[in-house]
């Protein structure tokens, strides 16, 4: 199963890991880290919306957060998605 990752565990950042899912399995999002307990619902919504805008359907997302703002979370989701679908970094 293909996976891709983006981000770091530095302050105000997060690591987003994506794994492609089987057709029809839909989207799964799991969160852990600094803000997950307090803002988990909002963060999950943000991850799902960002993935949807990028055209993702069947994918599993895992976020390890260290205080990332929405703009950073979105950037890391996008980077991980492009790595997953584009075949590598840079």
């Amino acid at each position: 199963m293909k996976t891709a990752q983006a981000g770091t565990l530095e302050s105000m950042d997060c690591v987003v890991s994506l794994t492609e899912g089987g057709a029809g399995n839909g989207m799964t999002v799991t969160l852990a880290g600094a803000s997950a307990a307090r803002f988990g619902k909002a963060m999950e919504t943000r991850v799902r919306e960002t993935l949807k805008k990028l055209g993702a359907v069947d994918v599993t997302a895992s976020v390890q957060d260290n205080g990332a703002l929405d703009v950073v979370l979105e950037a890391r989701v996008e980077a991980a998605w492009r790595r997953l679908t584009g075949g590598g970094a840079a």
Binding site: G7, A79, A90
Partner: peptide, 18 residues
Amino acid sequence: IHEKDSARILVSRILKEG
């Protein structure tokens, strides 16, 4: 060299919203 893509995306988004 391994993070050029993610930095580009991050900088672009922060330029728009930061």
